[in-house]
Design a protein around this nucleic acid. Structure first.
Length: 744
DNA sequence: ACGGCCGCCATTTTT
DNA sequence: TGGCGGCCGT
């Protein structure tokens, strides 16, 4: 440890930042030598420790930035860490090896690509390309695509890659029942085709690097020497190949590596994606002599929330064991509300009412989040929130680059920058429609195959030799001419102008401009505008394409204080809110039946960790709810409360059941508060029964009403549930009857 | 080649 | 309930 710490250093940033740390955090930051495992519970200042440790190493000149390897799971986490370290140091840090596993591997692989049969400018395929390629291969092998879905095989290939298994290493032990035992050979063909296309998929980024490390010790040695300090975030979520990659880099020579891994076994929720909790559980064996620091002081949530979360997670058996203590002074906080709604519609309505109430008492909408087990559950909430005029955002969902127009746009760029990128070319050859269908495309592919050329080259040759006739000949000649012009522009005026010109001349932009049918067309043009703007942030197309392939969250406009966030529990990891709503705590939904069917007890424990993650997102208040009857797609299904509700310690919980359809007034007394004992009794499933119909007197047409957000309006139409109202300011809206006050 | 219609199917998804 | 893929008719 460095003596610098104690030498006189007026206003040293190090001093300042070490000063705010608690004892364990301090230890985690200053134990720079040797292996270190930081078990960081939720809300214990993990990010702060990581960034301070980073800054500590740099400030004490223990290493240069380029000698530090810092790995995160998300681009967002990497970005945040970079910003915070720069902030601590008071200047931007250059040269760091900081990024996601995949982006770091991509960076390495650009250097060593020839060793695995790729050129340096290889393309990184997106999920869509992967499936399309695999589909082609399967079709060529006369496999019934309906009986054997390509997506399923893709999934298995990914799992193999996650376990560092090359095609030749697939033995009967890993093999799967697919297409009469052809899975392994299809995997092999897929890998071969990737190399022919000078492309690799996401899994390959890691697989190739591990392969290179294993087959070229001198390359590995170079990196081992370079990285004096290694930091790993979210270690509980590493899969086998990431673990191997880390171990290859960290374990060498006699002296123990300076590897620091941060994680929380209780927040491991990605095992279904290949993450292996045992990586964190066996850290001490892997790195003998490791220091273990437990961060257990939580600075986020009230003691009650911590008590509830701890109570639930205590039911798990395979844990390293941690107990969160509150690091906040003051009150124990509010009880966890557990609300029993008669049905899922009512559940959504109750949540909406509660959101209004909290908003009226000083919450921003952005202080609240609704977190649920699965994406499809958001729908009911979206509908209700929309009708109640509560602003919301759905976090997750379709990411920017996953949208059709963005993928088309990048495919155009790929085809421009990499004439041999057949997959990109295939995607756009008939977008907009140029009369090239499946038949023409297959023929073109065959010709390309025979001549060993790319699709673009083949098409050009066939056009010049007049092997393509009729209307297609003209359209395609025009199309290819666009590319040659764009290439000239690329050389003369740069990639921004060239791309714009290409999308313009090929008619791609016009295609959306002319699309009057769909409401989304305008939004798509906006997105394309954003895409074109973003290209300018990069020196060339290569850099931009690399970015778009690896950094998927181009639209991370988070931190919206004006909207309630709706998201899955998975998406909520790492976030926090003043109030968290946790709906759908019902057997079969949460814990998910499907998950438990697949993975048994281990899955149940993972579901429980999800519950733990959900609860610990809350700073002040957690509101759990469950419905007796839930609408799933078209039909209604009775449900019983989740076992996790029973696992909540009684002393932290307050149970509620809403009064029978009291709609005339809402607000303060909406819930009938009941004693814990009393309310916990009748929690059995109700028998099938007809849908409860609202029995409230409908508000008369023509009545004047007042809405919190939209103001005064006149009722144009009404049924038992909804009102159509013409508001003086806001115009015509249809909303839930419960949200208006009748004035006359 | 393409558009319309029918029927199937719906977890979680950092990269 | 709604989105998507495949089949069929033009």
């Amino acid at each position: 440890m460095s003596d610098d710490l104690f030498s006189p250093r007026p206003l040293s940033p190090t001093r300042d930042h070490l000063a705010g740390l608690n004892e364990e955090q301090h230890l985690a930051v200053t134990t720079t030598e040797g292996p270190l495992l930081i078990l960081a519970g939720a809300g214990t200042g993990k990010t702060r420790v990581l960034t301070t440790r980073f800054a500590h190493i740099l400030l004490h000149h223990l290493a240069w930035p380029e000698q530090i390897l810092a790995v995160t799971f998300t681009n967002k986490a990497a970005r945040e860490m970079r910003e915070r370290v720069s902030h601590l140091l008071g200047k931007p840090v250059e040269g760091l090896w900081l990024g996601t596993f995949h982006s770091l591997c991509a960076r390495m692989l650009r250097q060593h690509a020839p060793r695995v049969g790729l050129e340096r400018n290889f393309t990184i395929l997106d999920a869509d390309d992967q499936i399309r390629l695999l589909k082609q291969i399967m079709a060529a092998n006369s496999i019934d695509l309906k009986r054997w879905p390509p997506a399923q095989l893709m999934h298995h290939i990914q799992l193999w890659k996650d376990r560092a298994l090359l095609p030749e290493q697939i033995t009967s032990a890993h093999d799967i029942d697919f297409a009469n035992g052809k899975a392994r050979s299809l995997y092999e063909t897929y890998q071969t085709r990737l190399k022919e296309l000078n492309a690799c998929d996401f899994g390959d980024l890691m697989l190739h690097m591990v392969t290179i490390f294993r087959t070229h010790p001198e390359v590995l040695k170079q990196y081992q020497r370079r990285f004096r300090y290694i930091l790993v975030d979210e270690y509980q979520d590493t899969n086998t190949i990431q673990y191997l990659w880390l171990r290859l880099l960290a374990k060498h020579g006699d002296q123990p590596a300076n590897i620091a891994c941060v994680g929380d076994d209780d927040q491991s929720i990605y095992s279904w994606r290949g993450a292996d909790v045992t990586n964190i559980l066996r850290f001490e064996q892997d790195f003998p002599g490791a220091t273990i620091v437990r961060l257990e002081k939580n600075y986020r949530s009230t003691p009650r929330i911590l008590g509830a979360a701890s109570g639930v997670i205590a039911h798990n058996e395979s844990r390293l064991g941690k107990t969160l203590h509150s690091g906040l002074d003051g009150k124990t906080g509010e009880h966890i509300d557990v609300i029993n709604a008669p049905d899922s519609d009512e559940e959504a309505r109750i949540v909406a009412v509660k959101i209004r109430e909290l908003h009226d008492t000083g919450h921003n909408f952005g202080d609240m989040a609704i977190l649920m087990r699965a994406g499809f559950l958001t729908r009911a909430f979206e509908e209700t929130l929309m009708r109640s005029g509560i602003p919301y955002q759905v976090v997750g969902g379709l990411r920017f680059y996953e949208r059709a127009e963005i993928r088309d746009g990048t495919a155009y760029m790929r085809a421009l920058a990499h004439p041999s990128d057949d997959l990109a070319f295939e995607r756009i050859i008939n977008v907009p429609k140029r009369g090239v269908g499946q038949v023409a495309l297959t023929r073109l592919r065959e010709h390309a195959r025979e001549r060993g050329l790319s699709l673009q080259r083949t098409l050009e040759e066939r056009l010049t030799h007049k092997e393509i006739k009729g209307k297609a000949a003209t359209t395609l000649s025009d199309f290819m001419a666009c590319f040659s012009r764009a290439r000239k522009t690329l050389a003369k005026e740069g990639h921004v102008v060239a791309t714009q010109q290409l999308l313009e001349e090929t008619g791609y932009l016009d295609m959306w401009r002319q699309d009057q049918r769909t409401v989304e067309a305008a939004g798509r043009l906006d997105n394309l505008g954003e895409l074109l703007r973003a290209i300018g942030d990069f020196p060339d197309l290569e850099a931009f394409l690399e970015h778009i392939a690896l950094v998927m969250d181009a639209d991370s406009v988070q931190n919206d204080t004006q909207r309630v966030s709706l998201m899955t529990l998975h998406a909520a990891k790492g976030l926090e809110f003043r109030t968290v709503f946790l709906p759908g705590w019902e057997e079969g939904i949460f814990p998910s039946q499907r998950s438990m069917d697949e993975g048994g007890l281990a899955s149940l424990e993972e579901e429980r960790r999800l519950a733990y993650v959900g609860l610990t997102r809350a700073r002040e208040r957690a509101i759990i709810s469950h419905a007796d009857s839930r609408r799933i797609y078209a039909n209604w299904q009775d449900s019983i409360p989740s076992r996790f509700i029973d696992e909540l310690p009684d002393e932290h919980v307050s149970l509620h059941r809403p009064k029978q359809r009291e709609r005339s007034s809402f607000g303060r007394n909406f819930w009938q508060r009941s004693d814990t004992q009393e309310a916990s009794l009748p929690r059995s499933p109700s028998l099938s029964r007809p849908r409860p119909k609202a029995s409230r007197a409908p508000i008369a047409i023509g009545a004047t009403v007042k809405h919190k957000r939209f103001g005064i309006g006149v009722v144009l139409n009404s049924d038992s549930e909804h009102l159509t109202i013409n508001f003086e300011d806001a115009g015509q809206k249809t909303l839930m009857a419960g949200f208006v006050e009748v004035l006359s």
